[in-house]
Nucleic acid binder design. Structure first.
Lengths: 232, 232
DNA sequence: CGCAGCCTTGACAAATGTCAACAAACGTGG
DNA sequence: CCACGTTTGTTGACATTTGTCAAGGCTGCG
């Protein structure tokens, strides 16, 4: 593994507090690989052989059932995914594919579990990471069950605006068909939902979103920190 | 705290592997309380002062937004809840209320975090618990996003049947209005959904559910271990 | 009893999905 | 750099799913 990737991973919260010795042991069997876009990385149901770390690019976590499929999350650098499956030595619950050209580190799951068993600091870091992931899914669950698709979109627009630095105009960072899936609706419904936000001062041209009336949009969306804030 | 409750808690996976000394420290500030039915235990947004352990009875975890509310999970003995909020020292994402008369142990969150910092075995047990919780929510998310309400109900019926020991007739263990909320629908829709399962050999009288044609129901429900199995 | 809450049912409305058509954007190979 | 085909996004018409409102029956409990 190149030193640069090594350092990037070492600086992750998940690995920052462990001993040099244990980190080295973890990296011994690890390797970094470059993937083109739209490549399947893992398939739900497979045993969790590797903990994945996205170093660059982005990864879609999705699931299928009975011919349908849905996007559950996007992983962006620098972050890990399928940590829960790794520590539980259980099959993946989600599939993963690259959304774009991506560089991904693969750490053998059995090494993760072995180090986890002997390194208390690492175990504590895993807890923090898992607690964060858990709370993220719970928030997403609330979003899905308590809001209509129009409300979910309105709040998504506000969240993206915040990510872009509170500006009044910004770009969607993913395909609309995928955004629809993330928000739990069809592409057609998303297309109409964007139209449905026009009365609240939201304008969309291609991937550019412009908020003409912040107050009106917020009055409609009613964003809530316990659903929409990533830091809570 | 009475010895019996003490022993019950000690035997939980979460606390079984920690040292006697640390367990004693954890229990020093803890207490057990009896609550009647329908009592609010915690409110979403509140700081996480206590880790809760349900010793008997049952607890509903729910959330509200903009005048709507939804049940997210049921906690039954013996299990803890809001562990993620406790370890992250973050506000509760869900509210909790007793569904019936319940006995609940309250362990100060700051003690949990303190012991967590010094006891590696406890930290590892927390990981297992959180990973389990995380995977449960992910499965629920897939259930919600990939299935219609009729399909969710059909699979719920099959899961309950399994819990009851694979018998052909069993009882629902919660109010139908709450079941509707858990499954993400209205009580009226649930009422009609039960009717919609009649063609697949499901009969409902009050809280008694009878499966007349196991094969037909399974062909319709298409249960999937990665969504419906609690052990995976 | 009588009230309150739950469950059910009917009639209707709103939200969302499906299918088909077409336009726009994108990528690839010539 | 262009032509081509593929994919994505949009729109309309329509079907299905789900929610809402109102009413009535049932049950449990004071």
């Amino acid at each position: 593994m190149p030193d640069s990737a090594f350092a990037e991973i070492r600086n992750l919260d998940l690995f920052a507090q462990m001993t040099d010795e244990n980190f080295a042991a973890l990296m011994r069997g690890a390797y970094v690989q470059n993937f083109p876009a739209q490549i399947d990385l893992i398939s739900e149901g497979d045993p969790s052989d590797f903990l994945h770390v996205v170093l660059s690019g982005s990864v879609d976590l999705f699931s299928t059932w009975n011919g349908r499929d849905t996007s559950l999350a996007t992983v962006r650098p620098i972050a890990t995914f399928i940590l829960a499956a790794t520590v539980k030595d259980a099959p993946y619950l989600m599939s993963a594919r690259t959304l774009e050209k991506s560089r991904i580190a693969l750490i053998p799951s059995q090494d993760v579990r072995a180090i986890f068993d002997v390194d208390g600091n690492f175990a504590r870091a895993v807890v923090t990471e898992l607690a964060q992931s858990y709370r993220t899914v719970v928030k997403s669950q609330k979003d899905l069950k308590l809001r209509t698709s129009l409300e979910r979109l309105a709040n998504y627009v506000l969240r993206q605006q915040k990510r872009s630095g509170e500006v009044s105009s910004f770009f969607l960072e993913c395909e609309k068909r995928r955004l629809a899936s993330v928000l739990g609706m069809t592409p057609e419904n998303l297309s109409r939902a964007f139209k449905g936000l026009v009365p609240y001062g939201v304008q969309v041209e291609g991937t550019r979103v412009t908020i003409l009336d912040q107050g009106e949009l917020e009055r409609f969306a009613k964003p809530n920190p316990l659903i929409d804030d990533t830091s809570v």
